[in-house]
Design a protein around this nucleic acid. Structure first.
Lengths: 302, 302
DNA sequence: TAAAAATACTCCATAGGTATTTTAT
DNA sequence: ATAAAATACCTATGGAGTATTTTTA
């Protein structure tokens, strides 16, 4: 019967192409590896490695078996992680991905709070656009994402945390009664400033204004909301801002904000993780922190 | 470090709810199991089972870990299977699913051929409609399907084997010049007889005639092509027949067949299997047999 | 109190280590 | 000729068995 130890050895040898180095990485001697590999080859009745004078090369079957072994080993690691995470949520390394239209506004208050509540957490943050984050989540280089829902990949679990309303930002120079509500028509008569393509916020803003990508004309594509706010302040157009960014981007910047009439357009922020992830408990704990910070941020600005 | 043996024990105990019976199934003594479970619980720091006076119940964490263990064990079994299948394709048990509009025509010639070429193969066949077959393939109760492509599930690998043209079947009483070609219009003026809902052939026939499901009127839903052929022979309507069925269903039955004009409508028959299946080599060997039988059957009839 | 799991203790199979030989270019 | 894998042989860990005790509704 095959053992996990044997799969570890086979995987390491396939990866390194060398019994000696694999032995070192597995913290055993080379003969120990040789023996186990021999046993596996006998048990399975296939030759796993082609022995060359300067190392080994996996046979086609060996390569496939090593790939499968790697999957098995990862899942076994997941079992240990699952147990540890359930024992003590938010400890150890956690790779978090955040979209650029959320990171600058929610991370600053989140990080100290996480540090205080979960001192054993080693958070590693990556900021990137939705599409890249989803790919990284799928291949395991990220554990959990903070982004705008919905996410259409069925292999991911998601959890909505926060409704983030959109407000219309216009130059402060325009005199508007405090009672006026924003509408899509108001925007169509002016120039809508957007983030560059690939930002989900761009697509959401277009949807709010009921515009297709093709109708945007020569719309400038900014790479950050601060840039856009500067442009708006200088009367170069209008934009939509999510409320979580207001305290950072809108105060004292020479812009006026207008709430939309009900139903107010909004995006839903939440977490996403692999359904098979052992860190579901972590995600729930993280969701608490995100929700807390988000609510506090909203309260401050609307 | 956790071992596969421990995962086997944990999985068996969770499944049976009883150390003693699990020990029996694992062919070890109960104390051996108890010890290994204890080691796992210590290593993971989680209690896996709630000990009751008449057996045990998995804790929530224990249940999740047992589920993951079952996955790991299945994948390890896959590794062994993969090796065995590569050593000797088409040996051992293989669960094949076939759609009802293919099974009666390709299986009869396939089975003796498989028996002759792969005497060690223990083929188990299930005949059902596409949807059920796909579900069974997904949950592992079938290993490979013989059906009409395409299949839209990304977790399955498919391989096209055979183009199976459709011919128009009409009552022999109608006098038609041998030169006339069938067209969709010819069918619309008459009554199209179809299989009951759920058969992919029904949908394909509707597509050929450019009809929606809603336009079929009170179309009778037959459960087999032979029934339909009888109806056609008695001048109750027309139907489309795939060429692989002709030698069985069309000879001496009082119907006339009409080829379609180019491009002739057709369905593509092929195999589907889980991408992760260890039996890809089996599938290729099986594809050879299907292709051979299919070509021979077509040659006989067109 | 009775069924079932845990413990105590012994044994042995097997993984691993050291020293050495064989292999392949 | 040389790097690297295979083999020989010994050691020791840990998994399994038998007998027995403890646990819990």
């Amino acid at each position: 019967m095959i053992t996990l130890r044997q799969l570890r050895y086979v995987e390491a040898i396939a990866r390194l192409g060398h019994f000696g180095r694999a032995a070192e990485q597995c913290s055993v001697t080379q003969p120990a590896l040789s023996l186990q590999v021999k046993l596996v080859e006998e048990e399975l009745g296939v030759s796993l490695f082609e022995r060359l004078p300067r190392g080994v090369r996996p046979t086609p079957e060996g390569a496939e078996i090593a790939r499968r072994a790697a999957r098995v080993l990862a899942e076994v690691r997941d079992i240990s992680d699952f147990a540890r995470i359930n024992r003590e949520p938010l400890t150890g390394p956690l790779n978090l991905g955040v979209i650029p239209t959320v990171a600058p506004y929610l991370l600053p208050p989140m990080l100290p709070l996480l540090r205080a509540r979960h001192p054993a957490l080693k958070l590693r943050v990556r900021e990137s656009r939705t599409e890249h984050l989803l790919d990284a989540l799928a291949d395991g280089s990220l554990d959990v994402l903070l982004l705008a829902l919905p996410v259409d990949r069925p292999e991911f679990e998601t959890m909505a945390i926060l409704e983030d309303r959109f407000l219309l930002a216009m130059p402060a120079s325009r005199k508007i009664s405090g009672k006026v509500k924003a509408t899509a028509e108001l925007i169509k008569d002016d120039r809508l400033l957007l983030l560059e393509e690939g930002h989900c916020l761009r697509d959401q803003a277009l949807a709010v204004c009921d515009l297709r990508e093709s109708e945007t004309g020569e719309a400038f594509g900014a790479s950050s909301l601060s840039t856009i706010v500067q442009l708006v302040a200088n009367d170069l157009g209008l934009t939509l801002l999510p409320e979580i960014c207001l305290s950072v981007e809108a105060e004292g910047r020479g812009i006026t904000l207008l709430r939309f009439a009900d139903p107010e357009p909004q995006r839903t922020l939440g977490l996403a993780w692999r359904k098979s992830s052992p860190r579901a408990a972590d995600c729930l704990a993280l969701a608490d922190v995100v929700g807390e910070v988000g609510r506090e941020r909203k309260a401050r600005t609307v």
